[in-house]
């Protein structure tokens, strides 16, 4: 718990001391999340078909 509160306090102090850096980090965070979602939808198998196991004739 202490580690977590220390981490939050540290983030808050960075936000106060370096507002531009904090903004850039936020943008990158959102951007990263959007890209992960995009890549998931582009590469995921969206079919709900039961898995077909290929067996030789």
């Amino acid at each position: 718990m202490k580690v977590f509160t220390n981490f939050i306090n540290r983030i808050e102090s960075i936000k106060k001391d370096h507002p531009k850096l904090a903004f850039a980090c936020q943008v990158l965070g959102y951007y990263g999340l959007m890209m992960i979602l995009y890549l998931y939808f582009m590469l995921a198998n969206l079919s709900s078909a039961p898995k077909f196991v290929y067996t030789q004739f």
Partner: peptide, 16 residues
């Protein structure tokens, strides 16, 4: 909100 809009713009440019 500004950060989200900037990220969205960046994302749209990348995807395009």
């Amino acid at each position: 909100m500004k950060a989200f809009a900037a990220a969205l713009l960046l994302f749209l440019v990348t995807v395009t």
